[in-house]
Nucleic acid binder design. Structure first.
Lengths: 182, 182
DNA sequence: GCATGCATGTAAGGAGTTACATGATTCA
DNA sequence: TGAATCATGTAACTCCTTACATGCATGC
């Protein structure tokens, strides 16, 4: 049976430790969110499907009255996760509205380009900040690969912010030249 | 009336010159594709909606028998495009399966991590190649911002490929150390 | 005559978000 | 007592992809 992309996030998270749907959502939001998100609308139905396929199993935990189902991988589920991890990744996608605006920015004498670049720079800087806030949360017991992924996120967005900075500077210089020539 | 994301790609492309739906698709595939794609299933229905909203108008071009509708912006459409360009961009998204695998790669002694990194590197290198192939196509009459966007794509993917290279080297070094210690 | 490219479109379905609904528990 | 958090879930919707259907035109 084919599994959806979200299914693998769930299997991966449950591979770390047994968790409730709520736990999974919170962990995703505090870790993979910037390159792979998941909403309740995906998580809860998918947990059912995975349980139906025998890849995970849920244990009801009364835990002082509040009802809560903790899910964990079955042997099949763990096998499935291992297989997926060993395969070559496929999906790599970006959607960047700022680049789109930059692409179309001819015709306003550089004004739209400058504002798109400035906004894009702010976007990346704000992502860097949010990722830096996550650093202490990951720092403890987690795998070195989780740290590595976080570094990637930070460095990649720093790179992008600096690229914007350079582009803004070059654009300003060209416009000064343009004015002098005119 | 709210416009869909795809609507703005179409307005933007028609802002350059009048085009058929087929032209738009081809141009998107040869330019914005890596950060903003569009399929026929979006383009043709959206062209109708935009025409219905009075933002574009279609001109039938018999052009030696083959039927073809060339769409162009109306005054309203051009206004709408200018307004959108002046607004701050919002959407910035990534989906990167290789990072997800890296994140979950504890437990196989670095094997899954190494293969995810190698695959991610190849992905970025192949994107760089494809973007370099586009360079001559953009080089002629197009706006300097289109060149800028293409440079961004190339440099960003080069950066990512190099990051993977470094991570692979560090991982290999750690494993040598690990073996020596054991 | 046939493959390729031009050209327009639809149907079905997958993936994902948002908003809502519900209710218990904990802590100030 | 009231706000925040824990916890589960669904419905409606948007967005997008894939696959298919159709047919003309061009060039080998």
């Amino acid at each position: 049976m084919e599994l959806s992309p979200t299914a693998y996030v769930i299997l991966g998270m449950l591979g770390m430790r047994p968790m409730s749907g709520y736990d999974i959502k919170r962990l995703v939001d505090n870790s993979t969110r910037f390159f792979w998100a998941a909403s309740y609308g995906q998580i809860y139905p998918e947990l059912r499907r995975l349980a139906g396929a025998g890849l995970i199993e849920g244990v009801e935990e009364p835990e002082s009255g509040r009802n809560r189902t903790v899910h964990r991988l079955t042997a099949d589920g763990r096998k499935r996760l291992r297989e997926w991890l060993a395969e070559d990744p496929e999906t790599f996608e970006m959607r960047d509205e700022a680049l789109l605006k930059l692409f179309f920015a001819a015709g306003s004498g550089g004004r739209d380009a400058a504002s798109a670049l400035a906004a894009k720079r702010r976007q990346h800087e704000s992502i860097v900040e949010r990722l830096r806030d996550l650093e202490p949360k990951v720092a403890q017991g987690d795998s070195s690969f989780q740290h590595l992924v976080l570094s990637y996120g930070i460095e990649c967005n720093e790179w992008a912010a600096e690229w914007c900075e350079r582009a803004i500077a070059e654009l300003a210089q060209e416009q000064r030249k343009g004015r002098k020539a005119a």
